[in-house]
């Protein structure tokens, strides 16, 4: 169930993206945070507690909204706009999709 609620600006064109492998609809101009939290109630899990997180500051300060795309790239959901065809994961990706190599 969605966490956030839309209150206006519903006239924008729809954008299809993939969330955990499933096609989903967002609106053009949505951040990834908006796009995902209008589908489900969390964005990621904390590495230490395993508990769900859904962002906190929405302004690029808390860093609690990083998610991954299908290429294994990290994206900050509150400050990245959704684009048609994007594929993002809030749960662990299937192992067939290899994240890109380490930072070294």
């Amino acid at each position: 169930m969605s966490l956030i609620k839309r209150v206006a600006e519903a006239q924008r064109p729809a954008v299809t993206f993939h969330l955990n492998g499933q096609p989903c609809q967002a609106l053009a101009g949505d951040t990834l945070l908006t796009a995902i939290l209008s589908q489900q109630s969390y964005l990621r899990r904390n590495e230490f507690s395993g508990q769900p997180r859904a962002g906190f500051c929405l302004m690029g300060a808390c860093q609690d909204c990083w998610i991954k795309d299908a290429q294994g790239r990290s994206l900050r959901a509150c400050s990245t706009l959704v684009e048609a065809g994007m594929s993002v994961w809030t749960d662990t990706q299937p192992s067939t999709v290899q994240p890109q190599g380490a930072a070294s």
Partner: peptide, 25 residues
């Protein structure tokens, strides 16, 4: 305070101003 649905005041305002969303009904 880490639960989904708990946000800063600034975040609540950004949700509305920048995305036309509310942090809950």
């Amino acid at each position: 305070w880490t639960l989904p649905g708990v946000y800063t005041l600034g975040a609540a305002q950004i949700a509305l101003k920048y995305q036309a969303t509310a942090i809950g009904s």
